[in-house]
Design a binder for these strands. Structure first.
Length: 284
DNA sequence: ACCAGCTCCTGCTTGC
DNA sequence: TGCAAGCAGGAGCTGG
């Protein structure tokens, strides 16, 4: 599922193809994503040039020539692909089912960018510059985990008196922007913290180490090109490969990978999501 | 205010 | 073989 590293991988993958590109036509599907498409989006985007592409949490922000921003969220199963020759690639590319194409950008140079999302948990929005950070889904986002704002004192303040589990706290986008279920599991394993541990119970040393482990986990995933687990592919259509490096996610009943630990990995449900942990290594 | 649980959605896997 | 149930989860919403 696209989390911060996958979204960053997509951002880097599509950036060289779309910067300074003018949109010739934009086609929208009739199906609604998590939010309906903004009114007249196709006509508003036609003729605009993409000036830059940024990321905030799991959101992609495309800055347009007319002080507007196209915002995209990949949800659970969203993909973005650049197709150099529309007809040929559509025909031979088995990975994208065209019936789940929701936004098709055709640029003046003939290149095509497709937003495809079978489960339709994704989202597309169009916002003027002066309204951008007032959008509720952006306004309340917490620290970027790879920025200088993400520090142990910051996390300590967020976790103060929190009775909710550390696992659900890591998934709270108002605290940290961009972590999803997979990397929450991986970071907690790396930090030797049990996902059931109440966030407010962590002492300074463990929080310090957790900050380090979150950064390390996310950076490693970005370096590996993002995971391609189930639905994710890089922008050029090639598979990422970080899924081979999961130390804990999806390893229920398998032996813990830590040296000298022979314990079996446990799988539990927390807030409707699967958590994996080693009961020996990860302390409450 | 805070927290857990439900909901949306489709495709893959599992079980009978 | 075929069908149905189960599972996957990001984020917004609801109810305790």
């Amino acid at each position: 599922m696209p989390e911060l590293p996958e979204v960053e991988t997509v951002r880097r993958g599509i950036e060289p193809h779309i910067i300074d590109m003018r949109i010739k036509t934009l086609t929208l599907s009739s199906k609604k994503l998590r939010l309906p498409f903004p009114a007249n989006m196709a006509s508003k985007l036609q003729g605009q040039t993409i000036k830059s592409i940024a990321r905030r949490g799991k959101y992609l922000l495309l800055h347009l020539s007319t002080a507007q921003n196209l915002i995209m969220h990949l949800g659970m199963s969203g993909r973005i692909q650049i197709l150099h020759n529309t007809l040929i690639n559509f025909h031979y590319n088995q990975s994208l089912n065209p019936k789940h194409n929701h936004v098709i950008f055709v640029f003046i140079n003939g290149k095509t960018m497709v937003f495809n999302d079978p489960r339709r948990f994704g989202m597309v929005d169009l916002v003027a510059d002066n309204d951008l950070w007032e959008r509720p889904y952006l306004k309340h986002l917490g620290a970027e985990p790879l920025s200088n704002n993400f520090t142990a004192p910051y996390l300590k303040t967020c976790f103060k008196n929190k009775t909710a589990s550390i696992k659900s706290a890591l998934l709270d986008q108002r605290i940290i922007a961009g972590i999803g279920n997979i990397y929450a599991n991986e970071a907690l394993f790396d930090a030797y913290i049990n996902p059931l541990c109440p966030a407010g119970m962590l002492d300074d040393m463990r929080i310090e180490n957790l900050v380090y482990c979150i950064r390390k986990t996310l950076k490693a995933a970005i370096d590996a090109g993002g995971s391609s687990l189930r639905d994710h592919r890089q922008a050029d259509g090639t598979l990422g490969y970080f899924q081979h490096h999961f130390k804990i996610y999806g390893r229920a009943e398998k032996v813990c990978l830590n040296t000298d630990c022979n314990e079996k990995i446990c799988k539990i449900q927390q807030n409707g999501q699967s958590s994996f942990y080693c009961p020996q290594c990860q302390k409450l």
